[in-house]
Design a protein around this nucleic acid. Structure first.
Lengths: 309, 309
DNA sequence: AATAGCGATGCGTTTTTTGCACCACCTGTT
DNA sequence: AACAGGTGGTGCAAAAAACGCATCGCTATT
């Protein structure tokens, strides 16, 4: 899109906070880029950047203008996607921000299913915890977000939710594996791997622990679900996960690859809510809107009684 | 704004439905314009116009794209206005659509008051009846609308309203001038000048007439309030107006330049509502938002007890 | 059949954009 | 205090893009 060039360039400079660095990324010389910016500033009638010794920084006017540019880019993407949809070929680009829970099984499955019908749609999956995902939506860096507890901003528009209990994961040889449902007191003195504070799972656990004034024997804290799942095979420790992050068999109580999952009694730890949504007031590109529909369908298939639309 | 050129051109062609005509208006050759359009269509990957023997016409994709262009232009105007506001100088352009009622006294007064403080703000006043004004808002051709009864579209967002009774205007020598309040039966066989069907005043009158199964002795129908007011001096006929369209003295029952106004009893003809508002969901340019504030203040001054915010 | 109006295209000219070399300036290090 | 390495800004010539003229092919009207 030729007519977007200058605007894209300004956006790039704002991100890089340096004309020369941005020029390198954009594969042009810094002088050409510099002059484009001077020209736009001239047309606006006011500078958009403060010039510092170490580079440039947006001033207030620049902040406003860059915000406009991003909104404009997002709307253009929507229109393009809608136009492409007219000709039958659905093309486009969908950007999803999500916590780690859905990255293992849910998103790969849904995307594969979507791509099997629409090869011309590409994806951008960024792993981000709730607060960052909401910020990414607001700055139009992403189209959709999947957030597991809690929603903080009022400009997040939830489209669908599903209730998810917290499960304990462990080797099937673990002493707690024989229980159907786990109470918090079972976990006393059992070594556990906890997700970091950013995680919704951790926050739900905290609620339960605070209520009972308990502490867990935390052997390790990590934001990697993958590490956790793999480590459980090596030592008799307990990790935590929600059903959407587990293979279907494990979520239903059967062992998979030597691991097994057991729900924590909701008397001890409340169930959490997984939210699917987007920025309030935004009209999504067709591809993103349809992908969201598919995610919701898939959620309904996996958790028929816990889906809310 | 250089980066808007191609988009502005497309908008112009869409309006003119002809490349050559648009080129003339834009003061370039048709070939340059033609090539810009071909280039954009090439970048979009699909034609935006249908080529007819008599010119061009937007296809579906074009409709979508032009809508995007207009939204983009409106948002750019807002950002520019906001940026200008940062530097203390309020500059900008305010576009108002309104029926004839407010064009005589209200809008001229308010604009003069506004311009006395902000000389850098320019105005565009388009006289349009309610339905057309709403359409102009929706297509982003205007920023604000003043509509006297009724509001038809759900995307019109009312910001303030004021109740207005319908008044009869006549020469002070007219036989009805001695009454304080006029009943519909007084108007039987009195020659009247009616506003056209588009007018809210006419529609309110119709409500009263239908209810009583009456007809007026319509000597003339016009959409020009100016003509009506001037004609009343020449013949013993009655015209209709709402207070906001009258000089303050006349609205308060005193004669002005040989003319006098008397309210119709609200038992016969219901009061109407004058709405000030904009397109739902739009963020207005600073200049327009502040102008709207001033209009509302002014309304409050003129009709203290009938203003609703 | 002739005509008038439309959008599209080839080509030479004009305008705009780009890249190179270099300047002035600031910052942190030697 | 001198210096090296970074920043944005500018003069000038080359490259690229946009433009205008002449002209084509097509269609609807006369």
């Amino acid at each position: 899109m030729r007519f977007m060039t200058s605007l894209r360039f300004i956006d790039a400079v704002a991100r890089e906070k340096s004309i020369r660095k941005a020029a390198e990324k954009l594969a042009i010389t810094s002088t050409a880029l510099n002059r484009r910016i001077l020209q736009i500033e001239d047309e606006i009638g006011q500078p958009l950047f403060e010039r510092l010794a170490s580079g440039v920084r947006l001033n207030t006017a620049g902040e406003l203008f860059v915000q406009h540019i991003r909104a404009q880019q997002a709307d253009l993407a929507r229109v393009q996607s809608q136009i492409a949809d007219l000709s039958g070929i659905r093309r486009g680009h969908v950007r999803v921000a999500s916590g780690t829970e859905t990255l293992r099984h849910f998103l790969p499955d849904v995307i594969a299913r979507y791509r099997s019908e629409h090869k011309a749609v590409t994806f951008d999956i960024s792993r981000q915890h709730g607060e960052a995902a909401e910020a990414a939506l607001a700055s139009l860096e992403t189209d959709l977000a999947l957030i597991f507890e809690p929603i903080r901003r009022s400009d997040f528009q939830t489209i669908a939710t599903t209730r998810q209990a917290v499960y304990c994961c462990m080797a099937e040889t673990h002493e707690l594996a024989s229980l159907d449902s786990i109470r918090l007191h079972h976990l006393l003195d059992v070594p556990v791997i906890l997700p970091t504070m950013h995680s919704g799972i951790r926050q739900l656990l905290n609620v339960g622990l605070m209520r009972r004034n308990m502490q867990l024997a935390t052997m390790l804290e990590t934001d990697s679900q993958e590490f956790t799942q793999n480590y459980l095979r090596n030592e008799q420790v307990v990790g935590f996960q929600i059903p959407i992050g587990l293979p279907q068999d494990m979520a239903e109580g059967r062992p998979v690859n030597g691991l097994i999952a057991r729900p924590i009694d909701s008397v001890d730890v409340p169930q959490g809510t997984l939210h699917i949504g987007h920025l309030r007031g935004r009209v999504l590109p067709v591809a993103a809107a349809k992908f969201m529909d598919l995610m919701i369908t898939e959620l309904g298939d996996r958790f028929p009684k816990d889906l809310d639309q």
